[in-house]
Amino acid sequence: MPEPIRVLLVDDQELIRVGFRMVLEAETDIAVVGEANDGTSAIAQAGALHPDIVLMDIRMPGLDGIAATEAIVRRHPSTRVLVLTTFDLDEYAFGAIRAGASGFLLKDAQRHELTSAVRAVHRGDAALSPRITRMLLEHVSPGLGSPASDAVVDPATGLIATLTDRERDVFLAIGRGQTNAEIAETLYVSESTVKTHVGRVLAKLGARDRIHAVILAHRLHYVGDAATPEQAPPAL
Score class of each variant (00 low, 15 high):
145 G>N: 00
28 T>Q: 14
77 P>A: 09
20 F>K: 00
78 S>E: 15
86 T>E: 08
185 E>W: 08
117 A>L: 01
107 K>A: 07
25 E>P: 10
121 V>T: 12
36 A>E: 06
75 R>Y: 02
25 E>T: 15
102 S>I: 09
25 E>Q: 15
160 I>C: 15
96 A>W: 02
172 L>W: 12
215 I>C: 08
229 P>K: 08
176 R>F: 00
149 S>C: 10
58 I>N: 05
191 E>N: 03
84 L>I: 07
90 D>R: 09
25 E>W: 12
210 R>Y: 15
86 T>F: 08
115 T>K: 04
153 V>W: 13
153 V>N: 05
51 P>N: 12
172 L>G: 07
211 I>D: 06
87 F>H: 12
17 R>F: 02
175 G>K: 03
195 K>C: 05
7 V>T: 05
208 R>Q: 14
143 G>V: 07
123 R>Y: 02
203 A>N: 12
117 A>W: 01
194 V>C: 00
223 V>W: 06
147 P>M: 04
192 S>M: 06
93 A>P: 06
200 R>G: 14
228 T>S: 13
159 L>T: 13
25 E>N: 14
87 F>Y: 15
114 L>S: 00
131 R>T: 14
63 L>E: 11
221 H>W: 13
158 G>F: 01
136 L>R: 07
49 L>P: 02
118 V>N: 00
106 L>S: 04
166 R>A: 10
182 E>W: 04
183 I>S: 04
222 Y>S: 12
172 L>I: 06
226 A>L: 13
157 T>P: 05
156 A>N: 13
86 T>I: 13
186 T>D: 14
69 T>K: 02
132 I>E: 11
118 V>G: 00
143 G>P: 01
37 N>T: 11
165 D>Q: 14
218 H>E: 13
38 D>I: 04
33 V>I: 14
194 V>M: 05
37 N>G: 12
210 R>W: 11
